[in-house]
Simulated assay, not measured.
Amino acid sequence: MERAGAPNFFVNRYTGPPRGRDYERWREELYRCTLRVDVQPGAGDSIDCELQASLLGGVLLGTFSGTSAEFSRTRDTLKDGYDGMCLVIATSGRVLISHEEHSIELSESQMCLGDMSVLCGTRMSNHSKIKTIRIPRTLLLTICPKAEDQLALALRGQPPVREAVARYHALAANLGPHTDVVGQHLMAQHMVDLIALLLGTDADRTELASYRGHSAARLDLMRADVIANLSRGDLTIYSVAQKAGVSPRNAQRIFEQTGTTFTEFLLEQRLLLVRKLLLDPLNRWRKVSDLAHSAGFPDVSYFNRVFRRRFGVTPSDMRAA
Rank of each mutant, 00 (worst) to 15 (best):
A4F: 08
P7G: 09
N8P: 01
F10N: 07
G16C: 03
G20A: 00
R21M: 05
D22G: 01
D22R: 07
Y31Q: 05
Y31E: 09
R32P: 02
R32I: 08
E50G: 10
L51V: 14
Q52G: 08
A53W: 08
S54Q: 05
L56I: 05
G58F: 00
G66M: 05
S72I: 05
T74S: 15
R75A: 15
D76A: 14
T77V: 07
L78K: 10
G81V: 02
D83V: 04
A90R: 07
T91C: 07
G93L: 02
R94E: 13
V95Y: 01
V95Q: 05
V95R: 02
S98Y: 03
S98K: 12
H102Q: 14
I104G: 05
E108F: 05
M111R: 12
H127W: 05
S128N: 09
K129A: 13
R134G: 11
R134E: 14
I135V: 15
R137A: 15
L140D: 14
P145W: 11
E148S: 13
Q150H: 14
L153K: 15
R156F: 06
G157I: 00
P160W: 06
E163I: 00
E163D: 13
A166H: 12
Y168M: 09
H169V: 02
A170K: 08
A172W: 02
L175D: 08
G176I: 04
H178S: 13
T179A: 08
T179H: 03
G183H: 05
Q189G: 13
M191L: 04
V192P: 01
I195S: 08
I195R: 07
L197R: 13
L199V: 09
G200W: 07
L208V: 06
A209H: 06
S210A: 10
A228K: 13
D234W: 14
I237E: 02
Y238W: 01
S239H: 04
S239A: 08
Q242S: 14
K243M: 03
Q252S: 15
Q252Y: 02
I254H: 10
F255D: 12
T258S: 14
T261S: 15
F265A: 10
F265V: 11
L272Y: 01
R275N: 10
N283W: 03
S289F: 00
L291F: 01
A292D: 08
H293G: 01
S294P: 04
F297V: 01
P298L: 00
V306L: 08
V306W: 10
F307I: 10
